[in-house]
Amino acid sequence: MTQRQLSGFGGHTIVLDADGHLVEPSDWSETIAEEMARLDGVALGRLHWWLIRFVRDHHREYGMPPLMRVAVSAMRRDADVEDASSRTLYRLFPDGPIREACRYGGLPRPESCI
């Protein structure tokens, strides 16, 4: 397994696992998420952040990330977006919206194949 390290966070080194998830979830902060995204060439905008926070809240409440359909319906309700759909979410994170929101949100890689 290849781990990566991010440094420069007040002298603290952040370790990412082979899939790019934080090895220590308590290291997470919005600054670290921004840096992880920057290294991936992704600029996190308002909707990215809405999804990351929604996924984090869902994980805290239910112990797992949401289904895509749950995220889409919450986006329709709460995110002030005209075309709220799974396509919108895939435009944000083409490699998998929920999985990537977990990664940038400091959560473990989703286990399920659903």
């Binding site: 869902h58 409440e61 239910y62 112990g63 797992m64 949401p66 289904l67 359909r69 749950v70 319906s73």
Partner: peptide, 12 residues
């Protein structure tokens, strides 16, 4: 119950 609750909370 925590995980199962998402089924009813979101009407799934």
């Amino acid at each position: 119950a925590r995980g199962w609750r998402q089924l009813t909370d979101f009407g799934l």
